[in-house]
């Protein structure tokens, strides 16, 4: 760019970096704030045990129910003198981990079944559609409660259950997208060239429908966070001495009158996180895929 004969800077193609910066500047404020919050949550989730000033089960009966803002306990302590901030950080980690795992699992299960239904057709497709109907007819929380009544509540059970949260949505979507993609020229062309069905779906159809799937995953991630915290709040899922955002609220509820901070801190985190994911998901949808409603 030292050449004096070069056209003025305004006309030159901006570099990739400056374009990225310009794109970032154009982001709506809400999307910026939401991304910043989510980034902070993921950093906290990764470093929870390093950042937490105390062990989460460290009991200090001398300083029970200390209000927030006290030296050493920024967010106060609970009924056993455990540090609320430390428990909050570790809870963010477990809740986000479960939600992320569940979203990936249910998206995979749903997409694979949806693709299989689109490819096999016939009885197989009807069987999958019947299971989709079944899932859609039974509210998730009711099914989760029933299963945990029979097999007991624990983290593996919770993750296993959450892996089925919303799979029917992906299955429906993937089937519909695959059916319309198969009617298009490119899928027919690679099939004519002798590609196996596996190859057609994984290498050709999946990349073409992934934008829609990613948007759906983002939007359902916030629902997964809410569903997990709801189940933990009701006493299923994460059990003591481990901690998740929902069960912190569940236990904090007993101290609503004397120590509302135990419940308010995790409540604020859940709300802001699921709000941020929703804002980001809506924005992504508008940018990537206007067809998803």
């Amino acid at each position: 760019m030292t050449d004096m004969t070069a056209p003025p800077a305004a006309i030159t193609q901006p570099s990739r970096l400056s374009r990225a910066i310009a794109a970032l500047r154009r982001l709506p404020l809400a999307v910026e704030l939401a991304s910043a919050w989510l980034l902070a949550m993921f950093v906290i989730a990764a470093l929870a045990h390093v950042l937490a000033p105390y062990e989460i089960s460290e009991i200090d009966l001398m300083s029970r129910l200390v209000p927030p803002g006290s030296p050493g306990h920024w967010l106060g302590t609970d009924e056993l003198g455990r540090d609320v901030l430390s428990r909050l950080l570790v809870s963010i980690r477990s809740s986000l981990l479960i939600a992320a795992l569940a979203t990936i699992l249910s998206a995979t299960i749903g997409t694979v079944l949806g693709f299989l239904a689109a490819q096999r057709r016939g009885v197989f497709e009807h069987a999958i559609l019947m299971f989709v109907d079944f899932q859609a007819a039974l509210p998730f929380i009711i099914m989760a409660l029933a299963v945990s009544a029979f097999v007991g509540a624990s983290v593996p059970v919770l993750v296993g259950l959450m892996a089925f949260y919303g799979w029917e949505r992906y299955a429906r979507l993937a089937r519909g997208l695959a059916l319309s993609a198969m009617g298009k020229g490119y899928a027919g062309a690679v099939m004519q060239l002798g590609a196996s069905p596996m190859r057609v779906f994984m290498r050709h159809i999946l990349p073409n429908v992934s934008a829609t799937l990613v948007v759906t995953m983002t939007l359902s991630f916030s629902e997964v966070i809410l569903a997990e915290s709801g189940l933990s709040f009701l006493g299923l899922g994460v059990q003591l001495p481990d901690s998740s955002l929902g069960n912190m609220i569940g236990f904090g509820r007993d101290y609503l009158t004397t120590a509302p901070w135990i419940m308010l801190a995790p409540a604020a985190v859940i709300t802001l996180t699921s709000l941020s994911v929703s804002i980001l998901g809506d924005w992504l949808r508008d940018r990537l895929d206007p067809s998803v409603s």
Partner: peptide, 17 residues
């Protein structure tokens, strides 16, 4: 959006508070 991203148990407990 705020309405359906706030968990109902949080709404309930804050209303009680």
């Amino acid at each position: 959006v705020a309405g359906f991203t706030v968990p109902s148990f949080v709404v309930g407990l804050v209303l009680v508070l």
